[in-house]
């Protein structure tokens, strides 16, 4: 049971992170799923426009005025079409983006949040007692809420925390947090090395 919860959490965290990694390719992802025809049309128009501009630059306006002007007219026409296509694509992308973020919310963020709420205190593994200061061990076993609740607990039962068992359990909430941190660090290192 614990293994499957951990596995599900691991999958959710990693998938969320992967989606975040590909966020700069978001347009590409959205284009390939929701707005492929629009993106293809824009690419085709931009390619044509570039070709016409290159051709126009290669000729002298004064020597071949008619040809130059005809190209100019085509360029003006294409520029309008490109503008329209960009506008259409922007609308399609907005729709796709909305669907994508809704999908992410339903499929990943919400389940992970629920998991952290309901199974947050599930023990993933244990560390020997006394390895960390008592306060840290309390957070490890009961999650971040323990830190927020520390003053209340002190008022409720003043005095030092008593050891309850010989091992300190590490709960799912903290484990997910630690996993995210590790992934962040790995990403930072990878980015620094590739930059």
């Amino acid at each position: 049971m614990v293994d499957s919860i951990v596995l599900v959490s691991l999958v959710l965290v990693v998938v969320l992170r992967v989606i975040q990694w590909v966020s700069h390719y978001k347009d590409y992802v959205i284009d390939s799923i929701w707005s492929k025809p629009g993106a293809l049309k824009l690419r085709e128009l931009s390619r044509k426009l570039h070709g016409l501009k290159t051709e126009q630059r290669s000729i002298s306006a004064q020597d071949e005025y008619a040809r130059w002007t005809k190209l100019n007219r085509q360029i003006l026409q294409l520029e309008t079409q490109v503008k329209d296509a960009q506008q259409q694509l922007k609308q399609m992308r907005q729709t796709g983006e909305k669907s994508l973020s809704r999908l992410r919310l339903v499929m990943l963020t919400a389940p992970l949040l629920l998991l952290r709420f309901w199974k947050g205190k599930t023990v993933v593994f244990s560390v020997p007692q006394g390895m960390f200061p008592r306060f840290v061990e309390t957070v490890l076993s009961q999650g971040w809420a323990a830190m927020a609740l520390a003053p209340v607990r002190y008022v409720w039962a003043p005095g030092a925390f008593k050891p309850l068992q010989i091992e300190t359990p590490v709960c799912l909430g903290i484990w997910i947090w630690a996993l995210t941190r590790v992934l962040d660090t790995v990403e930072f290192v990878a980015r620094s090395l590739t930059a």
Partner: peptide, 13 residues
């Protein structure tokens, strides 16, 4: 002349 034609084209467009 070139400049005049150029401006005429711009005007027409």
């Amino acid at each position: 002349e070139f400049l005049s034609l150029y401006e005429t084209e711009r005007l027409i467009q």
